[in-house]
Structure formats: structure tokens, C-alpha cells
């Protein structure tokens, strides 16, 4: 790790100003669970760190009006443990507490978590140029394609990259039509969470749509009764403290056993948090049966492009959606 300067501004405006002043090699850091980790792997090499966690007032959880609003600095554990969120929006709570460990959730913020980078092993462990990686060294190729690709994406991939978007929280937010508020040199703006993420295409090193010096200040989620009938179902290689092989964020609006509205997003299988509208369409207006739920799950993977070792993800992913739908719908009966 090369040396860097480190400051902790106290207001959002100071933070944005400090970024501009620092110039080349400046990066915002929040909890640091991704950035500092990637610095240790020499993937990230900032010259200046602007730590935004001391920025005042950015950690509030607000539920007034017609939306939930999470300050970007709220700890993952704080939102996960909020009893109202747990009751009215289990998909949000579960997506948080099923991620990482309590230690990391105490450190990581709900804003910073949106910018987590892929866990592709070829990306992480390719220091010294061992593995070609278009994210790490644009144009160098992709070792994962044709390699040990069990963990790689099957949706949204390109000839240049199949790295999975690893997050859980962004998947839940995409399902819930959440937005982010962003502050930057040109002022503030807001955008849907889904628009934060790029597909890899032929520029997989460009992952987010934030401009230079822009920082996330808040996340907003429109309130909806679908929140109650929701879940984040996550299948992994062990019971806890692991990234998803497949996951599904599901929220339903039901009339009896009939599906009036459905939101489904997928994790572990795609290059970005993946809204599965094909699956949603299968459900709308029909009675929710296990068979229909499976048909919806399969619809979500209609365009899947598996590699050598990850074709199971299409089947597992479909079944994960199935179970998630059954769990979510079941919450209306208790």
C-alpha cells in the first residue's frame, strides 16, 4: 500500500470541497470495509482519503411522510436492527443482516455498501499481473471466462467480464424502487439505485455512474404495503458470513392468493443488482402456487448465459426465487 493523506471533514460541503482540493488520486472512504480491503490487495491505490464518516447528520434513519430515508452514514447494523424496518420491510432488514458479519455491519455504512466491488477471485487475487482482468487492467482480458467460474454471473455478462455484483442490500433496494441522493461539485441530484450500476460491456472497469467527487448522502425508499410481504432469500456455500451463490429480494402485493403486484430482484447471479421484470410479469394477476412461483423463477433466467461451472446457478436461482415468493406470501398469513 502506498502512503496517502487522510482527512475527516465534518460537513458534506467540506467533504466535496476537500475532494476537489486533493486532486489526483482522491477517494472518499466510509466504513472502509471494501476500499481499505482493496488497498491491501493493491487494487485501489488512492493518494488521498477523505473519510466521510465524521460528517455530521448523515446517519439518520427517517420514516416520516411517504418514504423511508437512510442517511448514507447509517451503519448497516443500525438499519438491520431497526424494529420498524424489520417488521414493515423485512426484505431490507434481511438483506442487511444476512450480509457479512456483525463486526463488518457495524463498520460499513448503507451508502458505502452500494459501492462494494466484485468478489471475483481473479480480480481480487491477481496482484502482480498473475491473472488477466479487464477490471484490474483494462484490455488485459478475463481469466474467469473459460476458467474456474463457479461463482461468476450468468446474467448481464459480456465478452470482457462476468464478475458478480456481490451486494445484498443493493438488490433489495432495486426491488423496492429505491433512490439515492448524491452531492457533488455541481450540487445535489438524485437517481434510482438501479441507475447507479453499469453493465460491464467492454468497459468493466467502469462500474458506477457517479461522477468525480460525487458522494452518496442518502437512500430513499418509497413506502409500500408490499414491504410487509417481502423477504431477502440468500443461498450460499455456508450458513452465514458468505456471499450469495444466488439470492432473491421479493416483495408482493396480494389479494387473497392472487398476486396484484410483484417486485423481484436477484443477487449472486448478475453483473449488477438485477431486477427480474420477466419473473414479475409471470406472476401478476395469477394465483400464487409453487408451480407458478417456479415458472416465474425460470422466466428470470431465460436469457442466462452460464459458463463452464456455474450453470447450476440458473436452476438454483429459479428455485431461490420460488422459495422467496413462498416465504414472502406466507408473511401475509401470519
Amino acid at each position: 500500500m502506498r502512503p496517502f493523506t487522510y482527512i475527516r471533514p465534518a460537513t458534506p460541503q467540506e467533504a466535496v470541497g476537500a475532494f476537489a482540493e486533493a486532486g489526483e488520486g482522491a477517494r472518499f472512504i466510509a466504513g472502509g470495509t471494501t476500499l481499505y480491503d482493496l488497498m491491501k490487495l493493491t487494487i485501489e491505490r488512492p493518494a488521498h482519503l477523505i473519510d466521510v464518516t465524521a460528517v455530521r447528520g448523515l446517519d439518520r434513519i427517517e420514516m416520516d411522510g411517504d418514504r423511508l430515508r437512510f442517511g448514507a452514514n447509517a451503519a448497516m447494523s443500525a438499519v438491520a436492527g431497526d424494529p420498524t424496518i424489520g417488521r414493515d420491510y423485512p426484505v431490507l432488514s434481511e438483506a442487511l443482516w444476512k450480509a457479512a458479519s456483525q463486526q463488518l455491519r457495524n463498520m460499513a455504512t448503507v451508502g458505502g455498501n452500494l459501492l462494494q466491488r466484485t468478489r471475483c477471485m481473479y480480480f481480487r487475487n491477481g496482484g502482480g499481473g498473475i491473472y488477466p482482468c479487464n477490471k484490474r487492467e483494462p484490455g488485459s482480458g478475463c481469466a474467469a471466462i473459460g476458467g474456474l467460474d463457479r461463482g461468476q454471473a450468468v446474467l448481464g455478462t459480456s465478452e470482457a467480464c462476468t464478475a458478480v455484483s456481490p451486494g445484498d442490500w443493493p438488490v433489495a433496494l432495486v426491488a423496492m424502487d429505491a433512490s439515492i441522493e448524491v452531492l457533488g461539485p455541481a450540487g445535489s441530484r438524485s437517481l434510482p439505485v438501479g441507475d447507479l450500476y453499469r453493465l460491464p460491456g467492454d468497459t468493466p472497469h467502469l462500474e458506477f455512474t457517479l461522477g468525480p467527487g460525487e458522494m452518496i448522502t442518502a437512500i430513499t425508499v418509497p413506502k409500500t404495503p408490499a414491504g410487509r410481504l417481502s423477504t431477502y432469500h440468500k443461498i450460499r456455500d455456508r450458513e452465514s458470513y458468505a456471499f450469495a451463490l444466488t439470492s432473491a429480494a421479493v416483495a408482493l402485493e396480494m389479494s387473497g392468493d392472487r398476486v396484484e403486484g410483484a417486485r423481484i430482484a436477484l443477487g449472486g447471479v448478475a453483473t449488477r443488482p438485477w431486477r427480474a421484470s420477466e419473473a414479475e410479469e409471470v406472476l401478476i394477476g395469477h394465483l400464487l402456487t409453487p408451480e407458478l412461483a417456479l415458472a416465474a423463477g425460470q422466466a428470470a433466467f431465460r436469457d442466462a448465459r452460464p459458463g463452464r461451472h456455474n450453470s447450476f446457478k440458473t436452476e438454483l436461482g429459479a428455485r431461490t426465487i420460488t422459495d422467496a415468493l413462498i416465504i414472502a406470501a406466507g408473511r401475509g398469513r401470519t
Binding site: R119, M121, G151, D237, R238, E239, S240, Y241, A242, F243
Partner: peptide
């Protein structure tokens, strides 16, 4: 993270 050994759960 990728060499998976059992956790408490």
C-alpha cells in the same frame, strides 16, 4: 472468504 470453512451457524 473463498476457502470456505465452517462458521458457527
Amino acid at each position: 472468504a473463498d476457502y470456505v470453512v465452517p462458521v458457527n451457524a
